[in-house]
Design a protein around this nucleic acid. Sequence first.
DNA 1: TCTCGCTAGATTGCGTGCAATCAAGCGTTC
DNA 2: GAACGCTTGATTGCACGCAATCTAGCGAGA
Lengths: 219, 219
Amino acid sequence: MVRAVDHAYTLIRDGILTGRHEPGERLGEAELAELTETSRTPVREALRQLEMEGLVEVLPHRGARVTAWTAADLEEIYDLRAMLEAFAAERAAGRIEPKDLDRMTEVCDLMDEAAGPGATQDLDRVTELNAEFHGLVRAAAASTRLVTMLNAVVQLPLVVRTFHRYSAADLARSCAHHRELVAALRAGDGLWAQSVMRSHVLAAKAVLLRAAADETETR
Amino acid sequence: MVRAVDHAYTLIRDGILTGRHEPGERLGEAELAELTETSRTPVREALRQLEMEGLVEVLPHRGARVTAWTAADLEEIYDLRAMLEAFAAERAAGRIEPKDLDRMTEVCDLMDEAAGPGATQDLDRVTELNAEFHGLVRAAAASTRLVTMLNAVVQLPLVVRTFHRYSAADLARSCAHHRELVAALRAGDGLWAQSVMRSHVLAAKAVLLRAAADETETR
DNA sequence: TCTCGCTAGATTGCGTGCAATCAAGCGTTC
DNA sequence: GAACGCTTGATTGCACGCAATCTAGCGAGA
């Protein structure tokens, strides 16, 4: 048995992440209540939650809209994320358990497999594994507040389906970063881990910004 | 005319910050509705908001409690804050307007006055001015998301009435940091600004941790 | 023709009732 | 005497209704 709030939250969130609700689209409470087969009360709470995470904007007496990101937002968010993830990596270096490190190595192998060129390539699986990898780092950082903040800035990359914009070289570099991070964590070197993680996120930012620039150019 | 949610939010928040509601205390919705002279609906929304900011914890079907901080929480929060404020200072270095810098200098003068020893000392006024000073930095950083995150980690220092634990030397150092930060921002030196801000926050952390240690010792 | 004001429809904000869930106290059984 | 289960009281979670507010469209006046 799940709470209606969680049900509504998950449904609306997925609707935004999969692009079913476009940026700027208006989200009426009554409409969402019907969609989620609940009432407006849990929908309201779910929208508040999503507002905190930055996925929707709600204006008093005017309802909620799906957040529309600008290129400047994107840059700002990735800079924030770089800092937060680097901090998490540093903390993780002093706390992570060997079994988590082993699992991270496994995830790296699976990612190489799913990211490799050819018919077996599965970018959605890569996204999933990537989320697990970074989740392990955050969990090892052991800071509930940090995790909350990261959740707020990590949603966006999902919206824009990051990995579908990666070139083969970008993907290879990303996987290499992951392996290097595991090495840094295994060595217990906080500075190294922090540094690799920062590179990792900033590289992702560069890919995204270039992709965004290309899009507006060809338009 | 203000919204009932905001009214309830402000009232409950003040109740926690001023210590009227003690850490660990149970906060019943009905009770708060009566206290704020509204109904349970806006109270519920206010509690959710406060949960996001870390001031209360709400458990499903069991209601809300005022968050009880441990020494480890305190350390974690100050490390987070050091990083976030440093980041804000760096961004501010490239964007802040001369008139804001002038105002910051004014605030420094006023703080020296209010912090000075003797009968004119007014630590609540220092707290107020300190908030304005840091607010100017954050505003200059021009990142809505960063401001949201900082709000989440800046609440705590208010709860424990930080400045009342400062020695004369601590206060003097804090004011010196402020002046140095203004200099760094005026020079447009992001690295310098970031560095000063980090020192500033970590120094505050040290004062608080020592004070906390003393308290548990004499108990 | 442009601007301002008004009206109507729709939507959010809030109050309240009812059902689901939880904690505590009591009684029963081993 | 201790442990388990049940019942009762209290509290949260959810649904729905009404009032306050906003947006859009129309009409009157300059």
